[in-house]
């Protein structure tokens, strides 16, 4: 991870403890939460704040990738959020995207450590995001310490997107077996051809067999169940509502 002094923004001290991690691990988590970068963040944001920052995080990432032409698509929890209502799920604190091997090489060659500033609607200050590539990206083996190939980081508060790469599974006989360094396996034809859609209002690519990928990773209930993580899906408003609000509404009607 680039050292604190050379990338620091507003913080005086770093909330990272690299000594505690494996010596070859590149990206480190903050001392206060695994989904914050301790070089930029010093606290866990509140529910609403975090949601707004994550939305801006994925919007800026997707529009940057669209404009520089790198191929990226949604995966894991972020894909599940897309499936339900084209939005980040409010209880999520991280985002997952995937890139092709070619795109990663392209990003590493021309865009590593670039800063991208955005003036977002409704925000007075510009926000700056950092694209940082893991120097171990060339090694194609399963590597638990360096499973994240790159990060898109909000340099104001430290939230980030994990970027992983879809690679040829060189240990499999089948040429079409693909893998990611976090040991997830996919068939190439489940990912390609990518489909176009939108996410948080920005054009995005989606894996071809998106519901199969989701039900394999999260179970079939993830596609039908309306209760998740203390939230309930409101079918008419197409949005996740926290159980707390539902309960308080119920009490209000009662009294």
């Amino acid at each position: 991870m680039a050292d604190f002094e050379s990338v620091r923004t507003r913080l005086e001290t770093s909330y990272v403890n690299p000594e505690e991690d494996h010596p070859y691990k590149y990206f480190h988590e903050s001392t206060f939460h695994p989904h914050y970068d301790g070089r930029f963040g010093d606290r866990i944001l509140k529910y609403d704040e975090q949601q707004a920052h994550l939305k801006a995080l994925i919007q800026t990432y997707l529009s940057t990738m669209n404009s520089i032409g790198a191929e990226t698509w949604l995966m894991h929890g972020t894909l599940l959020g897309w499936y339900w209502n084209r939005k980040v799920m409010p209880w999520d604190s991280d985002l997952d995207v995937m890139v092709s091997e070619k795109s990663l090489h392209f990003l590493a060659s021309y865009h590593n450590m670039t800063m991208h500033s955005f003036k977002l609607p409704g925000q007075k200050r510009t926000r700056t995001y950092l694209l940082e590539i893991n120097p171990n990206y060339r090694e194609g083996e399963v590597d638990e310490e360096n499973r994240i190939d790159a990060r898109w980081i909000d340099t104001e508060i430290g939230l980030f997107i994990d970027i992983t790469t879809l690679r040829r599974n060189r240990s499999a006989d089948d040429e079409e077996a693909m893998m990611v360094k976090d040991k997830h396996h996919y068939m190439l034809d489940d990912i390609y051809p990518l489909r176009d859609s939108t996410f948080e209002g920005i054009p995005v690519w989606i894996p071809y067999a998106y519901p199969d990928i989701l039900s394999e990773e999260y179970g079939q209930e993830a596609l039908s169940g309306t209760n998740h993580e203390h939230h309930r899906f409101d079918a008419e408003r197409q949005t996740w509502i926290p159980q707390k609000i539902l309960d308080s509404k119920f009490d209000g009607d009662d009294g």
Partner: peptide
Amino acid sequence: DRILQVARSAHNTLSSTSSKGHAKD
């Protein structure tokens, strides 16, 4: 459906689509 999706996304040169099915498509 697959062939129509391939037609839509074929312009992307940074894809890593090397599957046999994709080549046939």
